[in-house]
Design a protein around this nucleic acid. Structure first.
Lengths: 233, 233
DNA sequence: TGATGTGAAGCGGTTCACAGCC
DNA sequence: GGCTGTGAACCGCTTCACATCA
């Protein structure tokens, strides 16, 4: 698989484009231009063309992109043409909430197992998902063809869990513990740190006393006209 | 409040530094150098010095930073020296999970109210937190001194909720709905899109067939020695 | 001496502008 | 004519290297 160093910012936007194409397809729209896509998110049309061009010339000059065609390409590029089986480690509040959450949303991701160390919890079920002993992770993961691990344990245990799941051959990990983790080798780790997000809001509140003082620019923010508007992604 | 355009990447790191300083303070460490801080996260020491220097010369040449002193500065800078009252809109799975989650972690953030449209839910409680009718948001938010709104409703309602809470004077919003939102005026929006995060993992899996193919670089990744290691933040 | 603070260089991602093609 | 695909310019963040100071 070649793909010369695609930035994660690009792949994140691919997810956004795909969502939009799903809506357009549902509406029965046949073609769409980068310009009209760009307007939806208030981002630059050249950006969209460039993102898409990394993966091939999907567009037609003078016309735009064929919605259904591009949609299928994006699905394949993002690996969403197959099911991904997910294990959640930590059957606490967050872990069970995520289990329920994804159990009920129809995506390509299936929560296939929960893990914990608490003897009380092991053997129980959350919805249809059974809770296993974390000690058995490697075995269960192999049997249930788990590809993705979600870490939902307290911060001090997160690094240990990460090492355990990577040792079991997991290549994709999502971490909800509020701590930076160290990964080794060819493993993709994505940390969602809600504490940082909240503290970032706190910073803003502390520095925006009815001025524009603490206004912050992140990727995918745009100013249009006089009014400041933002599209957050 | 002056603060000349601090990047959000910087403020995010400030959260990380603060955590680390809390640990150091608990261990009784008195001073710390940017170099030793940097080693903890495998990031560049100049970066840390620069981040901190934006807010003032907290360091002492030849010595480093005084842990307790810097800790207090960071708390103040991040606005964590006061309580922030949070409302969660959407008393579904995610909303109640977040309520429980933050209800039990001792942070400066207090979940003070939940909101929903479902007559069945309104008036109920989740832990100690009451569920109100979303129609009464402005009134309840004012009475309970809500500063932060968390959007935990289905994607198609998110934009409407955002507009409603900003009309009620909320300046800081965290969005969990998997859709980009448009904010107007001096409001800080932070979107946590779990779908994008999962799809980013899916992309990686689809492109990393036992090569280094899909390897992606994000901020705060570092290579040390021969082995690829990453610190994800 | 040792660590900070910071101008300058480097780098990656975004935007511009236009050539190329339907 | 209209829209894509893309080199070049631009911009902001990161890293380097060193002057500065306890």
């Amino acid at each position: 698989m070649k793909v010369e160093k695609i930035s994660e910012l690009t792949t994140n936007r691919m997810s956004i484009y795909l969502r939009c194409l799903n809506e357009l397809a549902a509406e029965g729209t046949k073609t769409v231009s980068s310009e009209s896509l760009a307007n939806r998110f208030h981002l630059n049309s050249a950006q969209i063309r460039k993102d898409l061009a990394y993966f091939g010339g999907f567009g037609v000059r003078g016309v735009g992109y064929y919605v259904e065609d591009l949609r299928e390409h994006l699905m394949k590029i993002l690996g969403l043409n197959k099911e991904h089986r997910v294990a959640i480690i930590g059957a606490g509040r967050l872990g069970t909430a995520l289990t329920d959450y994804y159990g009920f949303s129809q995506t390509n991701f299936t929560v296939a197992a929960l893990f914990d160390t608490d003897k009380e919890k092991i053997g129980q079920k959350v919805g249809a998902v059974k809770i296993f002993d974390i000690k058995d992770f490697a075995e269960v993961a192999k049997r249930d063809k788990i590809e993705v691990a979600v870490i939902a344990v307290p911060a001090q245990f997160a690094q240990g869990v990460l090492e355990q799941v990577t040792k079991a051959g997991i290549k994709a990990v999502m971490n909800f513990a509020p701590t930076p983790l160290l990964v080794q080798g060819n493993v993709k780790l994505k940390t969602v740190d809600l504490t940082i997000s909240l503290e970032s809001l706190s910073y803003f509140l502390a520095h925006s006393n009815n001025t524009n003082g603490g206004s912050v620019k992140s990727n995918l923010i745009e100013r249009r006209g006089k009014q400041l508007k933002k599209v957050e992604i």
